[in-house]
Each structure stands twice: as structure tokens, then as C-alpha cells.
Amino acid sequence: MKRVIIDCDPGNGVVGANVDDGLALALAIGSPGISLEMITIVAGNTPSQTGFNVAKALLARLELDVPVYKGADRALAEPPQPWREALDNRVWHTQLAHFWQNVRPPRAYQAPDEEAADAMGRLICANPGKITLVAIGPLTNVALALERYPQMAEAVQEIAIMGGVFALDDFIKDTNFGLDPEAARRVLTCGACITLVPMDVTTRTMLTHADLQRITAPDTPLARFVGETLRPWLDYSMQTRRLPGCWIHDALVMAWLIDQRVATAADYYVDVELRPGMTRGKSWRYRLPLRVDTAVGELTGGLAHVLQTVDNARLLAMLEQALAG
């Protein structure tokens, strides 16, 4: 039994918001080998209060009692306004909000007084070597927890991260690292055992309408939640990204922790660009020894186990099994 905290920015049921966090939560909840001990919410795909409402609404539908904590409302340093404008309003600019017209939005919930960073740091440090932290949003909460609980880097069993993009032609940076580059660097270089799932591999995942119909065929509360909230995003993704379906980035992180046959991986040193300009928030990686090290200077970055390829059929089968349970 793997004990996990999921730090996320879910958007299921929210007009225009990505739903892969909710799919990762569903995979964790439906998998008997996972003990979901806490959900923490960070601002990213959705504002933190919105993400908190989504997580609470999911647990209420499933009649599950998992503690949920609301975390950071904004990045450590990155101005939030450009990101919020893009993430919250793009669906209205594209006039595609009607895809969500039959989806019930999450109701408002009152967040507890304790912050997400303190809740995760406290639980991890009280259980050294026992807790895996699954970080599938911007890394603000995790960075704050590491700052407040310095022993956490050694106490956490593993930090599994969805973020970064290294060599995709139409990306300079991804949302998770781009929205808070300082937090990404702080976490990647903290010395903890890190698994990184970048967009280079998650864009090799694919969920189509036929896949969604198949994996949500069982009449379970979890399958109904996934079917209802994924359909509008799938249509939106097909319309705006010109894909045959949608990528399911965050689900791959959870799937890897359950069954490592779902992907391949290799070790790299990874870092994030912090300097102002076009490449701020960009991630990069390298291996040692460098073939050209002239004028490189002091090497930076943290060692991470980076996923490289994915078995999409196995990933979908894992989702189907979890939703049936």
C-alpha cells in the first residue's frame, strides 16, 4: 500500500478548465494499492478556491472522507495576472463555453484554517520514509512546505512531479513550471528523490471519445464523475488543439506510481530558467559527463528520474480498471 498526498489544481466541472488532475485523483481513489491520505490545492489550472471546491465536490459525490487543504493563491514571484487571464478566460474568447452547459459546477466549500504547505509538511515529517508526494500543479505549495519544514526533503519517500517541457517544437515552457519557476527550481534541487513527468512524454498520451465511453461504462460514482466532467474538455481540446482526443498529463504520474510498466524513464539533472525574458520558466536537462563543458561554469540542477515513453494502452486499461472498482 503506497501512502500518497496529491497536490493539485483540479478543474472538473469548471468551464474551460483542464480535467487531468481529476482523472489522476480518480485513478488514485479507484486503485486498491493507493492510500490517498490528503489532497492539497494550489493555484494553477484553476484558482486555489475553485480547485478546493472541485476536490471537495468529488469526495462528497463518492462519500469519502479525505482531508483537503487549500494552499497558495499565487506564485512565489511570478505575476499571476497574465496566467489567470489565459487560463480563466480563453474559453470565453474562443466562444466554446457551451460545451459545459450540461455539467454541474462544484458548489462552494469552506476551506480549513491550516494551509496546505503546513498540512503536507506536518504529515510527511511525522511519517519519515512513508509518504509519496504527488505534485501535479505548480509547485508553490511544495516549495513553501520545504521552506517551513527543512527536514521534509529527507523525510518524503518520493516527490512525483508533472511539469517541464524539454524538446517539443511548439512549447517553450509548460504551465506548471512557467506559472511558478522559483518554486519549480526550489523543489527540483531540494535533494529529495524526484520523479519528473514532463510534457515530452505526457503529450504521447491520448484519450478519445471511444476510450472515454469504454472506461466509464461501469455504473459507478467514480465512472459517472469522470464521464460527466471529461466530455466537455475532450470536445474543447479537439477543437482548440486539433487533436483526436485529449492528453491526460497528470494521470500518467499516478499510473507510474502504481505500475512502472506504463512508462520508461532515465536519470537526468534538471533545472529551470529564472532570468527574465522569453525563456523564463523553461526547463532543461543534461547528463554527466558533458561532452562540451567549455565556459559552462558551475553546474546547477537536481537529479531526477525523468519519464521518456508511455504505453498509452496500458494507461487506459489502468484507468478502466480503477473506474470499474
Rank of each mutant, 00 (worst) to 15 (best):
residue 19 V to C: 05
residue 41 I to S: 01
residue 147 E to Y: 10
residue 24 A to T: 03
residue 280 R to G: 08
residue 98 H to Y: 14
residue 299 L to K: 01
residue 272 V to T: 10
residue 249 H to C: 15
residue 111 A to C: 07
residue 116 A to I: 04
residue 127 N to H: 14
residue 195 T to C: 12
residue 59 L to Y: 04
residue 291 R to K: 14
residue 1 M to D: 00
residue 52 F to I: 09
residue 221 P to I: 08
residue 300 T to N: 01
residue 31 S to G: 05
residue 68 V to Y: 04
residue 253 V to Q: 01
residue 280 R to E: 02
residue 35 S to D: 12
residue 77 A to M: 14
residue 50 T to M: 10
residue 71 G to K: 03
residue 242 R to K: 14
residue 83 W to C: 01
residue 149 Y to C: 01
residue 243 L to M: 10
residue 312 N to F: 10
residue 60 A to P: 04
residue 302 G to I: 09
residue 317 A to V: 05
residue 238 M to N: 02
residue 82 P to W: 09
residue 32 P to N: 05
residue 182 E to P: 00
residue 109 Y to D: 01
residue 153 A to D: 03
residue 39 I to C: 07
residue 323 L to I: 13
residue 148 R to L: 15
residue 224 R to Y: 07
residue 161 I to A: 07
residue 67 P to W: 08
residue 172 I to C: 04
residue 182 E to M: 12
residue 263 A to K: 02
residue 82 P to Q: 03
residue 152 M to R: 03
residue 297 G to N: 04
residue 300 T to D: 04
residue 44 G to F: 15
residue 143 A to G: 00
residue 140 T to D: 00
residue 302 G to E: 02
residue 145 A to E: 03
residue 307 L to I: 09
residue 310 V to L: 02
residue 93 H to N: 03
residue 93 H to T: 09
residue 143 A to V: 07
residue 255 A to M: 04
residue 281 G to C: 09
residue 81 Q to F: 10
residue 248 I to W: 02
residue 261 R to P: 08
residue 70 K to A: 14
residue 276 P to Q: 07
residue 269 Y to N: 01
residue 262 V to R: 00
residue 148 R to Y: 13
residue 194 I to R: 05
residue 21 D to G: 07
residue 74 R to Q: 11
residue 237 S to I: 14
residue 299 L to I: 05
residue 135 A to Y: 12
residue 279 T to W: 14
residue 119 A to S: 08
residue 16 G to W: 13
residue 203 T to D: 00
residue 83 W to R: 00
residue 54 V to Y: 03
residue 247 W to H: 15
residue 159 I to P: 08
residue 220 T to W: 05
residue 284 W to Q: 02
residue 220 T to D: 06
residue 265 A to M: 04
residue 108 A to T: 11
residue 34 I to S: 00
residue 37 E to H: 04
residue 193 C to S: 09
residue 134 V to E: 01
residue 267 D to E: 13
residue 66 V to M: 07
residue 185 R to M: 08
residue 127 N to L: 07
residue 226 V to R: 02
residue 45 N to Y: 12
residue 181 P to M: 08
residue 159 I to F: 15
residue 248 I to K: 03
residue 29 I to R: 02
residue 274 L to P: 00
residue 324 A to R: 12
residue 156 V to T: 07
residue 63 E to M: 13
residue 169 D to L: 08
residue 51 G to N: 05
residue 231 R to W: 11
residue 90 R to K: 14
residue 75 A to L: 11
residue 295 A to V: 15
residue 271 D to W: 15
residue 47 P to W: 13
residue 225 F to A: 09
residue 174 D to R: 06
residue 318 M to V: 10
residue 291 R to I: 15
residue 285 R to C: 14
residue 325 G to P: 06
residue 88 D to S: 12
residue 269 Y to M: 08
residue 175 T to M: 14
residue 60 A to T: 13
